[in-house]
Design a protein around this nucleic acid. Structure first.
Lengths: 261, 261
DNA sequence: CTTGACCTTGACGCTGCGTCAACCCCGCAC
DNA sequence: GTGCGGGGTTGACGCAGCGTCAAGGTCAAG
């Protein structure tokens, strides 16, 4: 008769593990001696070693029981099944590695490559880091809501960068954010925005894009984000309204005044 | 302002996950509305999406926080570290697959291949399944206690199988177990055992083997296992004692009677 | 007023033990 | 006898990342 620590030592496991196996019913609770100590025999050592062997091979404890007294056929079936599970788990982890590798670049957190390229061009154009991050967040939201439309939208956006006025616009916005509410500059920016919106509308781009962005609540959410980030956005939107445009994240022609009232 | 379920939906996670992130401090608890509901904004959606992206790439939640606002250098260091951990985990799982593959054969649970071969030969010689399992368990114990000595011991054991008397011995034992205590057969088996022990001793095999089996408590344990399994073993040991041999799992020449008393 | 869909907190479950905590028991040196 | 060190005992929390009730308050709609 041996004690639990000797049993554990012979089998190459910890005492705690043995008690755990008792707890989950993998090993029966043995008889106790006069002072309450568990007493084991050689049979327990054998059983424990067999359990350990299976456990170390990645067999879940819940299945060890069944495997210990399985016929060879059942046994190899079960083993095949467990092996399949291990393969699945390995595949998952490899997938994790792949994804993590793609995160090496900072911006690509949650962003498709088209957007990353766009943001890089923005940065290269001298737009401030804060502004780029604002754009990034906006596109994170867009990509989450309409992932399949990102390529199309980004194609338009990237094309717009070829227009020097686009870069100018961002620079002016940067300045505005820096100096605060300056009515003169605000007016100039609003004019530029209206002009570009007008052209975009004439080309038909605006309608084509907006048609797909059909989730008012979500657009409202994005607008509120912009408002919170920079108070100037609110003022700009008001000025745009005066010029016949409504919205921010999704700009549209405003319904004519007096149309309904 | 959106509710928790809308937030979760936009970010592609479950409501429960969001609450969990609050709980572990990954997302700050937001303001509540009049009836205690959590209210979120677009910034929360962005943050949550970034968290999800990292989590889905296998980044432990405990490190997400640090990664979210890390500089690119720190970020890529951390990513490299996490990738290394993933690799380690994958290696472990592959090791599990290797071990599990080797368990395909029933007996090899916890047994080195030499022993498996020996047991196969035993079975092929017509020894009963119960007897083979008894041997198997004995060798599981041996392999656990003296793994490095298994090859040597098994070489001797396997060689003994070439002696027809060895097989005869097992068969006689099988019969004994089957019919119970039969004094005549017991005597014959004891004689055979003594004879073979004698020859083994003369060849020097016995001393060589026993020299290494220097753990009286363990040998006692194995003996007790044999006794429990088959009462005949106890009788046989007594008969062997009459013939000048002591022990069972490890047989030795008995100290001469009257040597000490 | 009643649904039904959401919201809230609280708590257990899963996996396989590691790691205290608080308390007995045993043999041995003093 | 007594103290000490090295056993043993049960009980319970911790870890990772939520899933899944449970029990009840809220809200918009019919």
């Amino acid at each position: 008769m041996i004690t639990i620590s000797q049993l554990a030592a012979y089998a190459g496991v910890t005492v705690r593990a043995v008690r755990h196996y008792h707890h989950v019913g993998l090993m029966p609770e043995p008889a106790r001696d006069g002072s309450g100590y568990r007493t084991y025999g050689a049979g327990d050592v054998v059983r424990l070693i067999r359990i350990r062997t299976l456990a170390e091979a990645g067999v879940p404890l819940g299945r060890v029981q069944a495997l210990l007294d399985a016929t060879p056929a059942v046994f190899s079936d079960a083993v095949a099944q467990i092996d399949a599970e291990l393969r699945t788990r390995i595949r998952e982890l490899k997938e994790h590695r792949r994804r993590i590798a793609r995160l090496a670049d900072g911006d690509s957190l949650a962003l498709p490559p088209e957007v990353v390229g766009y943001l890089d061009r923005l940065r290269a154009s001298g737009v401030s880091q804060a502004m780029v991050e604002g754009e990034r967040d906006g596109w994170i939201l867009m990509a989450a809501r309409w992932p399949e439309r990102i390529p199309e939208l980004m194609a338009d956006k990237t094309a717009q960068l070829d227009d020097p006025r686009t870069v100018l616009l961002y620079r002016l916005l940067d300045e505005l954010v820096e100096v605060g509410l300056d009515e003169e500059r605000l007016g100039a920016v609003a004019d530029l925005l209206a002009e570009m919106a007008q052209q975009s509308a004439e080309r038909g781009d605006l309608d084509r894009q907006n048609e797909e962005l059909s989730d008012d609540a979500f657009i409202g959410l994005m607008d509120s984000y912009a408002f919170e980030a920079h108070p100037v956005v609110k003022r700009l939107q008001e000025l745009l309204a005066e010029r016949g445009w409504t919205g921010w994240s999704r700009i549209r022609r405003a319904p004519g005044p007096g149309q309904r009232a």
